[in-house]
Each structure stands twice: as structure tokens, then as C-alpha cells.
Write a protein that binds this DNA or RNA. Structure first.
Lengths: 190, 190
DNA sequence: TGAGTTATACCGATCGTTCGGTAATAGTCA
DNA sequence: TGACTATTACCGAACGATCGGTATAACTCA
């Protein structure tokens, strides 16, 4: 068949994701996306006929897949609840580069594209995440309602610690959050 | 001497702030800022010779002043610690329109302007806020180190709840955060 | 070869910005 | 009081640059 791509889809997603996470949707220009991927604009349009919006959309979708594989699946595993949570923390640490990289869910939820193509996907990811977290806590014997509260708080603190870390110019808040997360979720039940 | 302004400085700041909080720095266009303020682009440049960057910078500065007046001053008041925290919650509820509006500190800390003109101001605001919060808790008898931890957690949860609320399309998380804030800060000392 | 991939060149639109000029107020002096 | 001037606020039109996007040709390799 044809010629092989100089950048495989996975690398492509990673590099596009990096740009969107750094500067958001509006901040990301095709020039930046081109430089980050090593592909010229026209080549990007070959891979993403839908343009910048499709790129962001697919990056968001692949983030959803990543969450499913690296976070939700381990959370639904059969180890001890505390171990599953600790595994999640490990994965999060890698995903956010120890707090250096922002969260796509925050960076892509600007109001410019109000009720736009991203809002639904973002909401779904948040919901799936919280549900899986609540399920783990339920396994650990936490009351269902309390489990949901703690799950939301966990996600909220993740987002907040990333925002705060970026604002303060240090990754310490994020790292401390990760450390406190298991106890935060399974506090009275360890 | 000259002609009186059709929009006073305070209104101007409020309307510019609204745009930056909605769509961030890169997302905000002169066209949007012009429409939001009722001033034509050229008139905006009369008020802000430094252009868009000066607008964002002054909006950020005026947010710092607002924090000083409406948050830090009450926190340093002479009422009961719990009352001071509750007053802060009231002010925050108004400032963020019950969770409908995002935080400038989050929206202006994109990496596009890395180490740019906003980072220092953002950091200062975060620091002043946390210090004032920690002081209130110290007044309530909370251990100094613990007070600082809780203060940071408070700010982190504020940011996180705003991000989460926006992502989920509901203000409930923010409102619940506000409700839980006094107990979160002064939990064991009420 | 010929399908698949990348590159060069280009497009209209919009970006942030600037400039020349006009509208409106305040002070001056008759 | 009322023309004149100074000063400030505002706006229409245009700037160069860059935006996202699109042709079409050149290259690569099964």
C-alpha cells in the first residue's frame, strides 16, 4: 500500500495533547501543533480533516480511553481497595508529570465553545471517574452516599491542586495531594 | 478638563474581567472585549495603551484589590473566626456568581505566556490568601502547621470545585464546597 | 505503478494594533 | 453671558501579521 506515517497515531495524540494541556484550545495554534508533532499544517489536515476541533476532540477521546485503561480498570480490579487507590495515584503522577502538566478537562472547558463539542465528553469523563472511585470505597465498606461525596472531593482536589501548583510555580501541592489521596478516600476504613 | 468617560473605570474592569474569566487570555479577542465594554477597539487602546496585556494585567490587579478588601480584610477582622470564615464564603459566593463564573487565577495562568506578566501577581494573590486563612485558624487555636495545610486545602478545593462545576455544567459542587468550607477549616475547633 | 503521505504555496478572515480625526467637557477671557 | 482654546474620550478605517483552512504538486514505498 502507501507510505508509512512518520509519526504513529499514539505519538501524535501525545504531542497534540501536550500542546492543548499547556495553552488550551484557543491558545493552541496550528503552527504550535505543527511544530510539536513535526508535521506540516497540510499533513495535520490529512490526519484530521476536521481541523483543530477534531484534533482537540480526538485528544479528549484518547484521554478518556487512557482513563479507562489506566485508572478505571485498576480501580475495578480485585486487589485491596487501598492498593487500587495507590495504583491510581501512581498512574496520575505519571500522567500529570508529577504536577507539571495541566489537566485537559480544565483546559478544554472554556466558555468560548459554550455547549460545544467538548462539554459532553468532559462531563462523561468526570462522571465515570467518580462512579469508579465511589465503587472502590463502597467495596471498602464506606457508606454509599459518603463514598460519592469523597469521590467528588478527590476529583475536585486533583483539579484544584493542579491549578494551584501551576499558579504557584511548584509541583509540591500536587505531590502532597497524591500522597494524601488514599487516606482522603479511605480515611476511616483503613 | 476633558470629556467624561462613558464607562467608569470600575464598570470597565468588571466587564473586562467577565470576558477574561469566561474564555481566558488567548480566548479573549479585542472584538469581544469591545462588545462587552461598549467601547470600540480604538477607545480601549485609549484607556489601555498597553493593549490586551495591560487590560488583563489591570483586571488581575483589581482582583487583588478586591480580594484585599472583601476577603483579607474581613478575615483579619475581630469577630469570631467562624463568623469571619462565613463572611468570606458569602463574599466568594457573590464573586463567583454562585459558581457560574470561573476564577481569573486559573484562566490567566496558561503556559503560553510562560513566566509572563501574570504569574507573579497570581502567585502573590494565592500566597496572601493562604496566609490570611492560616492566621484565622491560628486565632481559633489550630496548630500553625496544620492551619497552613487546611488553608491550602481550602484554596485548592475552591479552585477544584470551580473547575468541576464548569465541567459538569452545574454549580452544585461549588455551592456544596462553600457550605462545607467553615467546617473544613475550623473542623475540630468549633 | 499508484495509493498514501508530506510539502509548497496560497486563500479569506480575523487577530492585535495604530493613526487621523471627531465629539464632548472644562477653563479662559471678552 | 458666549466665543475660543485646551484637554480628554471616542471612533472609523486601515495596518501588518497570523489565524485556521485548502488547493495541488512532490515524494515514498508496498
Amino acid at each position: 500500500m502507501g507510505r508509512k506515517a512518520s509519526v504513529d497515531d499514539e505519538q501524535l495524540m501525545d504531542r497534540l495533547s501536550c500542546v492543548f494541556r499547556d495553552v488550551g484550545y484557543e491558545g493552541a495554534t496550528l503552527a504550535m501543533l505543527s511544530e510539536a508533532t513535526g508535521l506540516k499544517k497540510a499533513s495535520l489536515y490529512h490526519r484530521f480533516p476536521g481541523g483543530k476541533e477534531q484534533m482537540a476532540r480526538e485528544v479528549l477521546d484518547s484521554a478518556g480511553v487512557w482513563l479507562e485503561e489506566h485508572i478505571l480498570a485498576p480501580l475495578k480490579g480485585d486487589g485491596a481497595p487501598a492498593d487500587r487507590v495507590k495504583e491510581m495515584a501512581r498512574q496520575l503522577d505519571a500522567f500529570y508529570s508529577g504536577g507539571k502538566q495541566a489537566c485537559l478537562l480544565n483546559m478544554l472547558s472554556s466558555a468560548r465553545i459554550h455547549e460545544g463539542p467538548f462539554t459532553k465528553a468532559i462531563k462523561q469523563i468526570f462522571e465515570a471517574w467518580i462512579e469508579a472511585l465511589a465503587a472502590v470505597m463502597a467495596d471498602a465498606g464506606v457508606d454509599k452516599r459518603e463514598a460519592r461525596n469523597r469521590a467528588e472531593r478527590g476529583v475536585i482536589m486533583l483539579q484544584g491542586s493542579l491549578v494551584f501548583s501551576r499558579g504557584m510555580g511548584t509541583t509540591r501541592p500536587f505531590r502532597e495531594f497524591l500522597k494524601s489521596l488514599p487516606n482522603e478516600l479511605l480515611g476511616g476504613e483503613l
